[in-house]
Nucleic acid binder design. Sequence first.
DNA 1: TAAATGATGTCCT
DNA 2: GGACATCATTTAG
Length: 181
Amino acid sequence: MNKKLVKQDFFLDHTSVVAQKLLGCFLIREYKGRIIKAKITETEAYRGVHDLACHASKGITERTKTMFGPPGRLYIYMVYGMHYMLNIVTEKEGYPAAVLIRGMHLLKPNNISENLDGPGKITKRIHLNKNQNGLRLDHDSKIWVEAVKRENRSGIIKGPRIGVDYAGHCKNWKWNFKLVD
DNA sequence: TAAATGATGTCCT
DNA sequence: GGACATCATTTAG
């Protein structure tokens, strides 16, 4: 077993901090006996009922209840009738927040990385759908995160989140984080 | 019930 | 830059 498997407390920090800590970490997916490994390169934070871009701002519903649950679990839902979004629930149970994984670099056997630049591409490529909603990040779930230590937060570009123009003043929050190449 | 609406991707110009 | 495919979820009635 891999010693770098992140534990639940990794996700207890402020969601914007967790989103930055995840940059450079590896997301591992086991599917049909094969291991798919990818480096996380872009994330976004969605936090609390006062964040109008966060689904939880509409309160707890059948869809959003996963975000109110314990941290370190998957929050997967569909948008635009065709794309699944991969999020990881953060902060203490009862506080709704999650990090959206927007970009990854897939590590391939030939050492050429496959760029997954968009949340819809990620879930499609690593075979995730709403059946995995609520799963714990763990070897047993066949999806987990391996931590990579970062000395500081240099090399991170911050910007407004994508596709949330409807979110009023919240749309300007710099909660999109990209790893600099 | 029914209408409105997206944490997007792809193709077009 | 813009059109649009396509449907689960939410909200209104």
